[in-house]
Design a protein around this nucleic acid. Structure first.
Length: 476
DNA sequence: GTCAATGATTCTCC
DNA sequence: GGAGAATCATTGAC
């Protein structure tokens, strides 16, 4: 609507309002606006149809006031101030502003329509719900850790992921803090701005027609604007939480290779329990501890290893040989130490069947071990008697039905193995630990490709354990 | 970039 | 619930 139309409308409306006011005044107090009676220091034309003065004069007068209002900005500051004061004190001002407010109200309503009462935004509700569920909004305690715990449970983890949990919680708390700080800032800014605008409008209402309703509406607009900013804040917070969550979940999916030492420990256990590579819970825990990994990781590792070994035994032959030798060396060392102890502690049984010479069993050095391995796998076992190595090669042959090069080698050393086993068992009572714990039993895998007697032993000895370890795995 | 190795996940079966 | 099997996804060597 153009201003001229508005002014015209206003003039008409004001004229009629004044007529009404005059009529009311006349009827209630007998004080007439007409007849140039003085009211508030301003002379007004008489109401229409009461004293013969026509409406055109009044319209012109009102138009004059409006013109003054409109042109007030064209004047110098001093002049404008004076004019403003004059208009402000004009006795017609309240009536004029009242009419203008009414017109504005009507115009505003038609334009704004149903914008006033906004229904709750579903997107905002979704954001609120999500922030509440993630523990960002709402009460401080519970939410974040609950979300982290839920994510952990979903991933199958327990206390194993405590580090990641605390990391997740810490980051979530950070997001939460930022969110609340920003929210507080927005609310404060909103309140400050609202107060400022209200004061400004109240101030301006002295010089231009501003109704309290309009101020109220303006406050509503400001609040809506700020709530839309808040929604952006909520949206970005939600995004941050989602990113954090996905990173957290991805991080758990991300794998890291175990350390060499850990892999060696696991392999040693696997190959030394090849007839029944199913570690008990206790063994798993111990392995986990030794390898600095989790029990579930140990389970995973053995699950993968069993399958991959069974799928491609040939490929693992070298590895099996290596670990067999390693285990043999360990066992021999243990036996040597035990035998020495036995000898030292039993003066009544000197040289009792297994006289170990230093030059033969000094296997601490890498060179000695290498020599042992070389001799062992070339068949030239020399003076070394290796416990259990024969089982490995027999196992290799029986596992996949093919004959291995190692099988022959194994046969060569078998007699020595038997001797060694016998001697050791006599010397230090390691029957269970070495002889009973067949590393590579010919019965390791059954015809269906599965391990026979795959029941998990209640307790098993770890290859890296010393002879003092309690071992009750009689299944091997 | 390719590829083998490998840890993790998912599904199915018992 | 645990194991086997298939598969995914990442790592690390080349």
């Amino acid at each position: 609507m153009s201003f001229s139309i508005c002014v015209a409308q206003c003039t008409d409306s004001l004229a009629s309002t004044m007529d009404d006011q005059a009529r009311i005044m006349q009827s209630i107090g007998g004080v007439s606006l007409a007849g140039h009676s003085v009211q508030g220091g301003m002379t007004l034309p008489p109401p229409h149809g009461h004293d013969g003065t026509d409406g055109d004069g009044r319209k012109q007068d009102i138009g004059d006031i409006l013109h003054q209002i409109m042109t007030i900005t064209d004047q110098s500051l001093d002049e404008a101030q004076a004019k403003k004061h004059g208009l402000n004190c004009h006795r017609m001002k309240p009536a004029l502003f009242s009419v203008l407010c009414e017109i504005k109200e009507k115009t505003g309503l038609s334009i704004r329509g149903a914008q006033e009462e906004d229904p709750p935004d579903p997107q905002l509700m979704r954001l609120d719900n999500m922030l509440l569920a993630e523990g960002v909004a709402g009460p401080e305690k519970g939410g974040g850790s609950a979300a982290a715990a839920a994510a952990a449970v979903a991933s199958g983890g327990t206390a194993d992921n405590s580090i990641e949990h605390s990391d997740y919680r810490a980051k979530l708390t950070q997001i939460r803090q930022i969110y609340h700080t920003e929210l507080e800032k927005y609310e404060q800014a909103c309140n400050e701005f609202t107060t400022h605008v209200m004061n400004l409008l109240r101030e301006q209402s002295r010089t231009r027609p501003i109704s309290p309703k309009e101020i109220e509406r303006m406050v509503g607009i400001i609040h809506r604007k700020f709530s839309s900013i808040q929604m952006q804040l909520k949206q970005s917070t939600c995004e941050a939480v989602m990113i954090l969550r996905s990173r957290f979940l991805d991080a758990r999916r991300k794998r890291r290779n175990f350390s060499k030492q850990a892999t060696e420990i696991l392999n040693e256990y696997f190959y030394s329990h090849l007839s029944n590579p199913y570690p008990s819970e206790e063994a798993k825990e111990e392995l986990a501890k030794k390898c600095s990994i989790t029990v579930s990781q140990v389970s995973n590792w053995f699950g993968n290893k069993r399958i991959r070994y069974k799928k491609n035994i040939g490929k693992f032959q070298e590895e099996a040989n290596l670990y067999a030798a390693k285990t043999a060396v360990n066992a021999a060392q243990a036996a040597a130490v035990a035998a020495q102890n036995s000898q030292a502690n039993s003066p009544t049984t000197p040289n009792s069947g297994f006289q170990m010479k230093d030059e033969e069993y000094q296997l601490d050095s890498a060179e000695s071990k290498n020599t042992l391995l070389t001799n062992m796998f070339t068949g030239s076992s020399g003076s070394y008697n290796l416990p259990n190595s024969g089982d490995m090669f027999l196992s290799m042959q029986s596992l996949n039905g093919d004959s291995y090069q190692g099988a022959q080698v194994g046969a060569n050393v078998q007699s020595q193995v038997d001797t060694m086993r016998h001697v050791i068992s006599q010397t230090a009572g390691y029957n269970d630990a070495l002889g009973g714990n067949a590393m590579y039993s010919p019965h390791s895998l059954n015809g269906n490709g599965g391990w026979q007697d795959a029941t998990t032993p209640s307790s098993v000895i770890l290859p890296t354990e010393g002879p003092e370890s309690v071992h009750s795995d009689t299944s091997n």
